[in-house]
Design a protein around this nucleic acid. Structure first.
Lengths: 203, 203
DNA sequence: ATTCAGTTAAACTATATAGTTAAACCAACA
DNA sequence: TGTTGGTTTAACTATATAGTTTAACTGAAT
């Protein structure tokens, strides 16, 4: 029973994830989620009393997953250039497997910016920043980055990786017209983005 | 009467623009639009029979406006480096004045990718691409771009400009925690992004 | 065998919303 | 002065949706 129980809860959670990611909070329907989970509405409400509750559970899981993917950047194991190459390779790979997450997360955050505060509460950026700066202090002389410009650099790196997925509808539309396949384009991007950034910061 | 007529239609259109951009198609309410326009629902439906009609009118106007802002890139008046500097300065300035447009446009396109096809139908990217390549053919030797990599470069440039606005909720949340003001950050970005790209493509 | 939790089906409530309608109002204008 | 079209008010219809309720069913545990 308890196992069955968990199975159902998981089924619901997965179905809800699919539907919310696809349609957004406003566009998603509880009935639709129930059908996707292979159950009925009554049981859905039996597990998650309200749509808000269910959405919050899903959103926190996904946003957490997405944000965690930036963690390796702050680990101290690689040189700056290696780190950049590693990041784009792994991060874009993650997005290839989960192409709809960026648009979903960004949209829901913009729709309700208060959500993000809860998620960032336990992240100490000052410390991370500092850590990153210390790690590469000796290398930084080689590069064209001041500590001051770190936020610009970080956002730029994120942008190069995430934007093609966040703007997928548009980009796919354009690539179609010039006969380029989106997946091929993304595959290429892993290396292009890495080299692009490395060139940009080199003195 | 006809003038008054136009005034009302404009009022409606502006109110609808505000509300749709803010809440998205799914989140917007006709009642809310009517109130914003200073009229009532009956009159709103008198001018635009359905929500879909009104939304399409608004969306096409905005998406057109947003896409048109990329046009200067294809004009033949500046060197490549000058163009890049000009683009970021002007494009980010436009986004400062219309900070919510990127998130709105990208989200609605992702929610309904068919929309974009209509907008791109009359744009001949092959020609534009070719044109751009011809314009800077003689310069290109200096830079690290093959014709093949142009789509990567263009998307990267767009990403660096647009992403901070598309992901504003998140980025503002992070910047807050490290004591940086979003507007200051954006102001800085005009130059940072331009130099970043120019360095990235230089041999 | 009884109990109990998970589950279903189906009807139900309550509410929000898109869109309609009809009657009246009013300013221009012919 | 009477007509007309933009406008309001307010009530209305129709529908979609979140969430509830109730009765019945099922399979496992005690």
């Amino acid at each position: 029973m308890t196992e069955n129980d968990k199975l159902t809860e998981e089924k619901i959670f997965e179905a809800a994830t699919d539907v919310f990611v696809d349609k957004g909070m406003d566009g998603a329907r509880m009935q639709d989620i129930a059908i996707h989970a292979g159950i009925n509405k009554a049981l859905l409400h039996y597990y998650y009393r309200t749509k808000d509750q269910l959405f919050n559970a899903v959103f926190e899981m996904i946003a957490g997953k997405v944000l965690k993917k930036f963690a390796p950047v702050f680990e101290d194991n690689l040189s700056l250039e290696e780190k950049i190459r590693f990041f784009f390779k792994e991060h874009i790979k993650f997005l290839q497997e989960n192409p709809k997450l960026p648009a979903f997360v960004l949209n829901e955050i913009n729709r309700n910016p208060a959500r993000i505060k809860k998620l960032l509460k336990n992240v100490h950026f000052e410390t991370l920043w500092q850590k990153l700066y210390e790690q590469h202090k000796s290398e930084l002389g080689k590069y064209n980055i001041t500590e001051d410009a770190l936020p610009q650099l970080m956002v730029s790196i994120a942008a190069l990786s995430v934007f093609p997925f966040a703007a997928r509808g548009l980009i796919e539309g354009i690539l179609d017209k010039v006969g380029v396949d989106f997946n091929d384009y993304i595959e290429q991007r892993k290396e292009f983005a890495a080299e692009f950034v490395i060139r940009a910061i080199r003195k």
